[in-house]
Design a protein around this nucleic acid. Structure first.
Length: 271
DNA sequence: AGTGCGGCCTGTCCGC
DNA sequence: TGCGGACAGGCCGCAC
């Protein structure tokens, strides 16, 4: 599933191919995603150029003079630049057609994704406005995190997956960051010491940076004929490894559920 | 206000 | 082989 590093990789992959391109058509074949895709996009955007693409958390924001498209890949979404003559397949819901006869094709089998339009500053859109700081920005730091966690009883794993606290930390990287920081996922956020806050903030940044670096080296081809590239997988130390030995101490990793999410951790290395 | 859960989806895997 | 059911999960929006 696309996590923040994958979304960042998509952004970097497609940007050089679509910036400055003029929209020639927007084909919406299946509007029923998480929210209905607006049907009137083509008349608004035809002839307009994509001026910039930015990422906020796991949202990609395509900016035009009249407004912005806000895109979320959800669980199974993919975005790829390809020649528009390539026949579309079952889950290819949207084509954003460009003047060089390529298109940005949005594919999403599970349809948890979203494509929305706003004529206003996208940062004021309700989905974007409430998002916390970018994890890789200096706004996300020990002082901020310490303050945010105080008096909070929610488990730290749930807490760091809250997009209001920090943008775009999903289940996989939450588990990996907590392992790296040596903190048990169930620990109440408010019980973290200053040092633990510092360690966890650093760990979140580290796992995300590492994954983005991996994505940059493993996925270069965002322009191809057969559709989207597969999502990359960094070597995960805990996620998906329940019952297997801890890479640090050899004790079998514990798999439990927090909310509806599978949670894997080491009962020895994480306290 | 903070917390936790329901619901949206479909491909994949498992057991019968 | 075919089928049903469990599972995967981001994240909004609601209920307590």
């Amino acid at each position: 599933m696309p996590e923040l590093p994958e979304v960042e990789t998509v952004l970097r992959g497609i940007t050089p191919h679509v910036i400055g391109q003029e929209i020639t058509d927007i084909v919406v074949r299946r509007p029923a995603l998480r929210w209905p895709i607006p049907q009137h996009l083509s008349p608004i955007l035809c002839g307009e150029k994509i001026t910039a693409i930015v990422r906020r958390g796991k949202y990609l924001i395509f900016q035009f003079k009249p407004g912005s498209l806000i895109l979320h890949l959800g669980m199974s979404g993919r975005l790829c630049v390809m020649p528009e003559i390539i026949p579309h397949q079952k889950h290819d819901h949207v084509d954003i057609c460009l003047s060089n006869n390529t298109c940005l094709r949005f594919t999403d089998p599970r349809r948890f994704g979203a494509l929305l339009w706003t004529p206003d500053d996208p940062n004021h859109h309700h989905l974007i406005a409430s998002i916390g700081p970018e994890p890789l920005s200096t706004l996300f730091n020990t002082a901020y995190f310490l303050k945010k966690t105080r008096k909070r009883s929610a488990p730290i794993k749930t807490f760091i997956m809250d997009s209001k606290v920090v943008a775009g930390v999903g289940n996989i990287y939450a588990a990996e960051a907590l392992f790296l920081a040596g903190i048990k996922p169930q620990k109440a956020a408010g019980k973290l010491s200053l040092t633990e806050c510092e360690t966890l903030v650093a760990a979140i940044k580290k796992v995300l940076r590492h994954a983005i670096k991996k994505g940059g080296t493993t996925l270069k081809d965002y322009v191809n004929a057969n559709g989207a590239p597969g999502y990359f997988r960094i070597e995960l130390k805990v996620y998906g490894r329940g019952g297997e030995p801890c890479v640090q101490c050899g004790v079998l990793l514990v798999e439990s559920r927090m909310g509806q999410r599978s949670t894997v951790y080491c009962g020895v290395c994480q306290r």
